[in-house]
Amino acid sequence: MSASLDLLINALVSGLLLGGFYAAVSIGIAIAFGMLDIVNIAHPAFILLGSYVAFIGNSVFGIDPILATLIALPAFYALGMLAYQVYYVAFERRDDQSLRGLSFFFGLLFITEVTLVLTFGVDYRLVKASYIGPSLNLGLFDLPLRLLVPFLVSMAMVVGLQLFLSHTFVGRAIQAVAQDQQALRLMAANPIKIKRIAFGLSIGTAALAGAFLIIIQPVEPSIGREYIGRVFAICVLGGLGSFPGMVIAAITLGVAESLTATFLGPSWAPAVAFGILLVTLAVRPSGILGR
């Protein structure tokens, strides 16, 4: 087999797996921005918080990084509910969400980063796990377990959340809340409570995404910023509010970045990613699966 075909297949496979990780990073924004109209640019900071929880769980208590963030999940959920409550009282209730709301989340991003720098310093941190390092050799290509494990857990999380949204009363209310808050009250649901739950879930996903991030690469406190543009691009590309669209967009972006990095060099990757975004939106303004 030719070397370039081998490269191509391996780039495709790692792009696909990387896409699974991007889906985990984006799903919180797909909820907050896509379903609640909340531009939470601090989401990457919560993901970093998840990475450091995984780091502490792993380096201090010797437990698996993913398990560490699963244990911390209720705390992240509560943190998300608290963040929404503050945002609601200070901005949303006053019909003032756009610009000052954005500055609230920018502040949150900044505070979290500074706290992480003061606590952990700016050194890169990493975790140890049996699946970091080895690959499954499947003849045609290698499956790096470091990417495969986050991919699988991420897909399980997306499927779980999708089932929750489409099969529970609270889930359906979350899908409805941005469309007509007053009408939701007429369904006997309190939209503020619904949004608080949804935002708690959104931040909960950041914990797991943080574990995936530190499994895939060493992290330092400001690394989350690299993901802000990419994450919003994925959500818009997929179609706001659609998880399946978001997953397709995440995988498309992962594959595109991986192919460009392999054949053109890593510095081209962002240009190609945003090129895809622009072309898709020109053809389909509501995204791949936007309603």
């Binding site: 009363f169 209310a173 409805a176 006997a188």
Partner: peptide, 17 residues
């Protein structure tokens, strides 16, 4: 005041919240 981007049955199920 329906939820325009939800299906008919999703709208009905929300009625039963």
């Amino acid at each position: 005041r329906l939820f325009p981007k939800l299906t008919v049955s999703e709208n009905l199920l929300l009625g039963a919240f």
